[in-house]
Design a binder for these strands. Structure first.
Length: 469
RNA sequence: GUGGCUGUAGCUUAGUCUGGUUUAAAGCGCCAGGUUGUGGCCCUGGAGAUCGGCGGUUCAAAUCCGCUCAGUCACCCCA
């Protein structure tokens, strides 16, 4: 009977499944991923650039916890920002602390500044960090639940040149990494006083249009008026053209500060664009706010008035003179920014930026057990001499070892077998010409260094004075 | 959180509409052999896939249906 057969079949299936239960497979959580070769090479390069330039600009490295008190972010970033309202990973510990995975780095650095008494150090204090940030949101191009940010905080400086210096650093990092057409989009949102009058004007303007606004914007008009400027709805964007600009509502001090910033930027020949509608999402910002973009090759940069498929910004920041006080610390002015490392790598890939690959220049090939032991010693010697050598001591087949050497593109292979061990010699093979030479063991380093020097000179000549084809 | 599209070896894909000659195919990559002390080219062979997962329909499911997970794009927002 069919039913019986079916039952048997199903039982069999169930058994087979049960057997394989032990080998359950896992995948990385949504929006989180592994980074490995070849991409990791670009991350490493960028980290080198960040570390070097941070030092050159006088920043000190700081490592801060990935978890912080949830309220630290609520107080600093703002209760009704999306970042804390719906994108935070919050967890309770056994001791009923409520912690959050950091969605950004500035709050933690500010906390560290206060907790560790950095205000008693010579001011200003410049700190940089690098590490993962977490936001519970839907993944999309250039946005992940776990992503790496590098941040720079310039604490205890109110001079407008600090703003300019900060932007210069940001641009230089982008350029040094290999990004093309790096530019700064900036604006000033003023101090708390300016913002009150601006918001009033903005609300007044939009209230006259409120019937034609999209439903989201109708709500924003009451909840977060500044966000009206970000709407992508067509009619809303039309209204934006004539909307009041923040710059028109700056008080005397803020206006003077911003003017100075622009002057410094001009002086430093920083490529910048004023974006009158740039208002950043985090509550702690005041006065100068900016974002960093790399304009794709043929596309021309435009200011905030014109609509165009804007590239994602790979960094953003600004002044946050109120934050320290908001967190219970001393009144401390500050500027800073964060870089979206994953986004920068993404752009670099699109722009065909090549990682600085570090391949070995020689390869040690061994055959037989005695030679294997000898090779282990030789490799130790080569490393002590700073010669980067490839090898695979686990392999018996010389053919396979030569293949690996070839794949790595090494110029020289050091070959050692039974005969060489006995005669205290090594074979040096030029992988390009195929010429092999027997060298006494004690002369190996010297012979190798000489060859590598010549090979390098060869290469340099080729690149700089090579015959044009 | 909402909606569109996608999911087949490590990678890129064919097969899915029209269920059964599919014991799921190819290229790249990987491993081994051809050359037992020598790489690239060539030739031969091998390993590698619970056809994202679970359930349903059917005599029969990679193929049809439901749910789910993940990826991707858009909204929201941001680095």
């Amino acid at each position: 009977m069919g039913m019986q057969k079916k039952q048997i079949l199903k039982t069999k299936k169930a058994i087979a499944r049960k057997r394989s239960q032990g080998t359950q497979t896992f995948q990385a959580p949504k929006g989180m991923h592994d980074i490995y070769e070849p991409d990791i090479a670009l991350f490493d390069d960028l980290q080198d650039v960040v570390r070097d330039l941070a030092r050159a600009y006088g920043y000190q490295h700081i490592e801060i916890p990935v978890l912080e008190d949830k309220d630290l972010f609520v107080r600093s970033v703002g209760l009704d920002t999306d970042m804390v309202e719906k994108e935070m990973y919050v967890l309770k510990t056994r001791g009923r602390d409520i912690l959050a995975l950091r969605p950004e780095g500035t709050a933690g650095v500010a906390r560290a500044y206060i907790q560790n008494g950095f205000m008693y150090m010579p001011q200003p204090v410049k700190l940089w960090y690098w590490g993962p940030m977490f936001r519970y949101e839907n993944p999309q191009a250039g946005r992940y639940r776990q992503h790496i940010q590098a941040g720079f905080e310039f604490l205890g400086a109110d001079n407008p040149i600090a703003d300019a210096e900060t932007m210069q650093l940001a641009v230089r990092i982008g350029e040094s990494f290999g990004l093309k057409n790096v530019c700064v989009y900036l604006n000033s949102i003023g101090c708390s006083a300016c913002r009150v009058s601006y918001r009033k004007a903005l609300k007044a303007y939009y209230r006259t249009k409120s019937r034609k606004l999209c439903s989201d914007c109708k709500r924003r008009l009451h909840t977060n008026a500044l966000r009206l400027l970000d709407c992508k709805n067509e009619t809303c964007m039309m209204f934006r053209k004539d909307a009041p600009e923040t710059l028109g509502y700056l008080c005397k001090d803020c206006s003077a500060h911003f003017k100075k910033v622009l002057e410094f930027l001009d002086e430093m020949k920083i490529n910048y664009f004023l974006d009158p509608y740039l208002v950043r999402g985090l509550d702690y910002y005041n006065q100068t706010v900016f974002e960093l973009k790399a304009i794709p090759s043929q596309q021309q940069p435009v200011d905030g008035h014109e609509q165009q498929k804007e590239p994602l910004s790979f960094g953003g920041g600004g002044r946050y003179d109120y934050l320290m006080k908001m967190l219970g610390g001393p009144d401390t002015t500050a500027v800073g920014f964060a870089l979206g490392i994953d986004r920068m790598v993404e752009i670099a890939k699109q722009e065909q930026v090549k990682a600085k690959k570090q391949n070995p220049r020689v390869y040690v090939i061994q055959m037989g057990d005695i030679a294997r032991t000898k090779a282990l010693q030789m490799l130790d010697m080569l490393r002590a001499q700073g010669i980067f050598a490839g090898f695979d001591l686990c392999r018996d087949s010389i053919k396979a070892q030569f293949r690996s050497a070839d794949r790595l593109g090494v110029r020289y292979a050091l070959i050692i077998g039974q005969k060489e061990v006995v005669d205290h010699e090594v074979l040096i093979r030029d992988m390009e010409t195929g010429i092999q030479e027997s060298i006494p063991e004690e002369k190996m380093i010297e012979a190798l260094k000489e060859r590598l020097r010549l090979a390098r000179k060869d290469k340099i000549n080729h690149t700089f004075y090579g015959v044009p084809s």
